[in-house]
Amino acid sequence: MAQASGNSAGKSFFGRFGVHIAVLILVTIWTIPTLGILVSSLRDKDQIIVSGWWNSFSSSTQTEAGRLPPPSEQVEKDGRFVIEGNVFGDGPVRQVSAFGVRSAAPTQYAVGEVADLGDGVTLQVNEDGGAILSSPIAFEGARGQRVYYASSAPPRFTTENYETVLFSEGIGRSFINSLTVTVPATIIPIMIAAFAAYALAWMRFPGRALIIATIIGLLVVPLQMALIPLLQLYNGVALFFGVPSKTYLGIWLAHTGFGLPFAIYLLRSYMAGLPRELMESARIDGASDFEIFLKIVLPLSFPVLASFAIFQFLWVWNDLLVAMVFLGSGSDQLVLTGKLNALLGSRGGDWEILTTSAFVTIIVPLIVFFSLQRYFVRGLLAGSVKGG
């Protein structure tokens, strides 16, 4: 008996230890990308291009191009024509490790080496970027010699990326637009789904099983496939009543329609697991279905309501497609994701804006998640255990 007890205690100890390790690994996996976005959003734009965020606290090697002074500044020394300058120009001085005169071979020569460029022309570049170009005959042309070089730069962090994003024209308006879209589009589905879930869980009526099967089937319908038919239907209704089609009401209804199947499914699974004795006792006391729903089921269902609110808020806040279709792309209609997408331009090559924009967009969802996270797991898992 003592041995069995010891084994049980040992298994319990290692079981708890294993769970803690697993949770730590999962938290780390989810935290590392967020940390990477935050660090990248504070880095210099030139360093983002040449190295990953994990190298942000060490010097980075960059390959760039500079130009020496034009031939008009050449001087004659000991029978040779010499042009002296610095490959960094007026920029900050860094440490050069190699140089070249062709883009295909930017590090062909070691720093300090006298490179033979042909026809007696030589070029020497020192560690501080100082360069000496020498030729037996006078240089001609209007532009100076282009020099490619590899240099190491110390880590540089800046808030310029956030200043570009947060203080760009229209960003405040787009933030308000996102809140105007997201808050009602989160509340409306919850209100409708809560009533529907109670009816499907505790009320008996013809066609109930068919409705539940239809809702489950709607869960697998891709949003993109239903978007065009829904838009045509909405535009037809708007035209019939003579009202504008690009309104907040339209996008609220669209997000409500796309979110209702999952909301009803999640809430019904939870409500169906509530103790039957509570409902029967309330009915014996003369309570109606509406009173049972309002005074008993709704307060007990707050964890699952909070769980769905997190999901719906994240989906709507990060949405771009539905907002562009149902709300429009005008300067006073763009949501935050649309405005940040416009800042990136058609090529999307501004990496510093991309990382900063990504972190800006997740700030509000993170606040919502951590405010409701204590209900999150409880709401998702409670429906899997039936009441006694």
Rank of each mutant, 00 (worst) to 15 (best):
136 P>S: 03
218 L>C: 10
220 V>G: 01
112 G>K: 11
83 I>T: 02
274 L>D: 02
207 G>R: 06
31 T>W: 09
190 I>E: 06
356 T>W: 04
347 R>A: 14
105 A>C: 00
181 V>C: 05
293 F>K: 02
134 S>Y: 04
229 P>G: 10
221 V>I: 12
88 F>G: 02
381 L>I: 09
262 F>P: 02
102 R>P: 00
23 V>L: 15
334 L>S: 05
345 G>H: 09
137 I>A: 11
351 W>I: 03
50 V>Q: 10
237 V>Y: 12
134 S>C: 02
293 F>P: 01
105 A>N: 13
250 G>L: 09
258 F>I: 11
370 F>S: 10
266 L>E: 05
223 L>F: 10
86 N>P: 01
252 W>T: 01
330 G>Y: 13
297 V>A: 14
96 V>M: 14
172 G>Q: 05
267 L>K: 09
136 P>V: 03
31 T>Y: 09
343 L>E: 05
14 F>V: 07
42 L>W: 07
234 Y>Q: 14
150 A>H: 12
250 G>W: 08
246 K>L: 15
181 V>N: 05
379 G>R: 00
4 A>P: 00
113 E>K: 09
21 I>E: 01
17 F>E: 02
114 V>S: 13
81 F>V: 00
161 N>I: 02
319 D>C: 04
61 T>R: 15
93 V>K: 15
